[in-house]
Design a protein around this nucleic acid. Structure first.
Lengths: 220, 220
DNA sequence: TCGCCGTCTCTAACGTCGTTAGGCAATTCC
DNA sequence: GGAATTGCCTAACGACGTTAGAGACGGCGA
């Protein structure tokens, strides 16, 4: 009883929303989203599970806060080089890097609503400001924003979800070849077996930016 | 006891993998992925939950099968008009339509591995074959495939995850405006409040295809 | 200094979930 | 016609998110 930690005895608060989110991110990084449990999270904080509910309404809130937190780790790169293409590439590359540092994060926004916490919005603001500066307006702006958003989130999600072992890769390729009558192209070229994700992201982004640039030149 | 349905009394099999998947798709369509439960699924089939495990190893298998099933509903549009751009657009539009008919489906592949069932692979085969016919090879082919894949899946996922009521939309916009010092661009243009998803998809796809076409012309 | 009040964590428990173990009837096979 | 197989059942386990309610603690007014 008197062994129990006193609230003020150490100066550190025993529990707080910030500490919960911090622990959640650590837990997610180490063990993945399936192992994130209110009980396990509480254990990490040396606390019983129901105590968390004083600071947080629901487990989904924890996840949303965790996702937004990883966007807050690094301030959005807001370099203004004058070249909107370089600016956009910088923002999106840093965005992608943040997602890959926490592989569980990319999959979350697809499931529930895209997490629209303050840190995420800050990144979105930078991206869209760059596009506005480039000359996009209205529908074109909206389409460009979503296309780029989907490219970052999608490529990060695909990459993290498709991280398979060499054994699985070999097995998949084998099965494709066995059905090469149904999937002649896939069996020959094997879209699954190129794991140069960085390259695919960069090249794909290049395609997209090329298309955007062409659109700008067409109707300035 | 003797009231229990006899196996052969009606000719219809009481349970089968196909019937399970069919019921799962119906349940997912009607109630969403959160309400998909082995018990509820069993109830729909007038059966007890553990019986499902005779035909299926795990709940995740049911979901994977359900996702692949919706790709099997419509055979992939394999029109060959000679214009690869038109072919690609047709495939991707039909693909997107299939996803929007079953709004729960787009979110799944992002979470676990992209479902690589036979029906899904058939669509992927058509897409990649079109790109090969257009002239893509190696890294460029891989990047183009993933970019297009991410665009369809991502836009469907964003659309279905972000379907919010007008009330929520108004509230979000209000909050953005309240913080217009931090998010000046978003507050003014409001990327969230354009819900012309079809338009954004088509326009964005146009950007991407423009970029791909430019790449082809550059190095034929 | 005392007693009250709000803050915060605790114990206990509820209902639901995915899944396993094992039994038992019907059908099929030899 | 007995044996093996198929395919459903009942029962139950452990884990989950979450709620109810008790009680310890510090701060504050009298």
């Amino acid at each position: 009883m008197w062994l129990r930690p006193r609230r003020t005895s150490r100066g550190e608060p025993p529990l707080s929303r910030a500490r919960i989110v911090e622990a959640a991110v650590a837990l997610l990084d180490e063990e993945g989203i399936d192992r994130l449990t209110m009980r396990r999270l509480a254990e990490r904080l040396a606390v019983m599970a129901p105590s968390l509910y004083w600071h947080v309404d629901t487990k989904d809130d924890v996840i949303d806060l965790a996702v937004d937190a990883i966007f807050g780790e690094v301030p959005p790169a807001a370099d203004r080089t004058g070249d909107w293409r370089a600016d956009a590439t910088a923002v999106l590359t840093a965005w992608r890097a943040a997602l890959l540092r926490h592989p569980w994060a990319a999959a979350v926004p697809a499931r529930r609503r895209p997490t629209i916490g303050p840190h995420f919005l800050a990144w979105m603001e930078i991206l869209q400001a760059t596009l506005v500066r480039a000359g996009f307006t209205d529908k074109g702006l909206s389409a460009a924003t979503w296309a780029l958003y989907n490219h970052v989130m999608g490529s990060a999600a695909s990459e993290t979800a498709l991280h398979i072992t060499d054994e699985e890769r070999r097995l998949g390729q084998e099965q494709l070849r066995a059905n090469s009558d149904r999937y002649p192209t896939l069996a020959e070229r094997g879209y699954l077996y190129d794991d140069d994700w960085d390259g695919s992201f960069t090249t794909g982004l290049g395609y997209l930016l090329d298309g955007l640039e062409a659109q700008l030149k067409q109707t300035p």
